[in-house]
Simulated assay, not measured.
Amino acid sequence: MELFSLRGKTALITGGTHGLGMAMAEGLAQAGAKLIITSTTPAKLADALAHYEAQGFEASGYLFDVTDEAAAIENVTKMEAEHGAIDILVNNAGIIKRVLAVDMPVEDFRRVIDVDLVGAFIMSRLVAKGMINRRNGKIINICSMMSELGRTNVTAYAAAKGGLKMLTRNLATEWAPYNIQVNGIGPGYYATSQTAPIRVDGNPFNEFIISRTPAGRWGDPQDLAGTAIFLASEASNFINGQIIYVDGGLLATIGKPANE
């Protein structure tokens, strides 16, 4: 359907080398977009580019840290010179440090905020300049259910993702007059390599997530592809400043009684 087509578009996905970022990038590529991905790890970047190439997707990679403004300026300038306009930006790069707040070093707290929130601001600000000139663009921030909920051990991450939710709404407000839509995706709990150790049968957290989620399962990374395509396409032209939670219904319920 033309409404969802991304043919002729270039999508920049930060941290698009694995997991949810790769799943969303694949969805955008399947809809016709040319991919640009970033990473801070040479081996991961090379492996990801080989994976996209094997899938028949056009993809290029750039190695830099999104929190380094000078490096971001240099690389975004290079991207635009080598590939033309960036039509879609997916701010996916992020980290998490699972430490109790009382034990978390301040430098670790700052690092999480820097990567998950400040990095998204740096990239959005740089890419939006071209979008403003062209009066067209899509920015998708990868938020989290921790934008809405609290949980033990993820204080810095929740603070960053809550800030990213409000950054999304404020950038949408500022840039809407230039026909730029800034929205967010809030993934629920997904079956990725990072969650593999806690998804084994008998693990209390695995059982908790399955029972807490109305869909009764962990998300498959491919479950995010459709939402990414939608928010990157003309189908979402009048949607702005919204966070779409792709969580199997988890945020919609307080859960089931233990004996149900």
Rank of each mutant, 00 (worst) to 15 (best):
L3Q: 14
L3H: 07
L6K: 10
L6M: 12
L6R: 10
A11C: 00
G15M: 05
G16Q: 02
T17C: 11
G19T: 01
G21S: 10
G21P: 01
M22Y: 04
M22Q: 15
M22I: 06
A23G: 12
A23L: 05
A25R: 14
E26L: 12
G27F: 10
A29P: 09
A29V: 13
G32F: 07
K34S: 15
T40A: 03
A43M: 05
A46K: 15
D47G: 05
Y52R: 12
E53F: 00
G56R: 14
F57K: 13
A59V: 05
A59K: 07
G61P: 10
L63M: 13
D68K: 05
A72G: 11
I73S: 09
I73M: 12
N75Y: 05
V76G: 02
T77Q: 11
K78Y: 04
H83A: 10
G84H: 12
V90K: 00
N91R: 06
N92G: 09
G94H: 07
K97W: 04
R98L: 09
V99K: 14
V99A: 11
L100E: 01
L100V: 02
L100D: 04
D103N: 09
V106G: 03
V106K: 08
R110K: 11
V112F: 06
L117M: 09
F121P: 00
R125Q: 08
L126E: 06
L126H: 08
G130V: 07
I132K: 14
G137P: 07
I139E: 00
S144I: 02
M145P: 00
T152F: 09
N153C: 11
A159G: 15
A159E: 11
G163K: 07
G163F: 08
G163L: 08
L164W: 01
K165V: 09
M166T: 11
L167D: 01
A172W: 03
T173K: 09
A176C: 02
N179T: 10
Q181W: 04
G184R: 04
G184M: 08
I185K: 00
I185R: 00
G186K: 03
P187A: 14
P187Y: 14
Y190Q: 03
Y190M: 10
A191C: 05
A191R: 11
S193R: 15
I198A: 15
R199M: 15
V200H: 12
D201K: 08
G202T: 03
P204L: 11
P204M: 13
P204W: 13
N206T: 10
R212F: 12
R212Q: 15
P214E: 01
R217L: 00
G219R: 13
G219K: 14
T227N: 03
L231P: 01
S236K: 07
G241F: 02
G241N: 10
I243Q: 11
I243R: 02
V246P: 04
G248Q: 10
L251N: 13
A252C: 13
T253C: 04
T253L: 04
I254L: 08
G255K: 06
E260T: 09
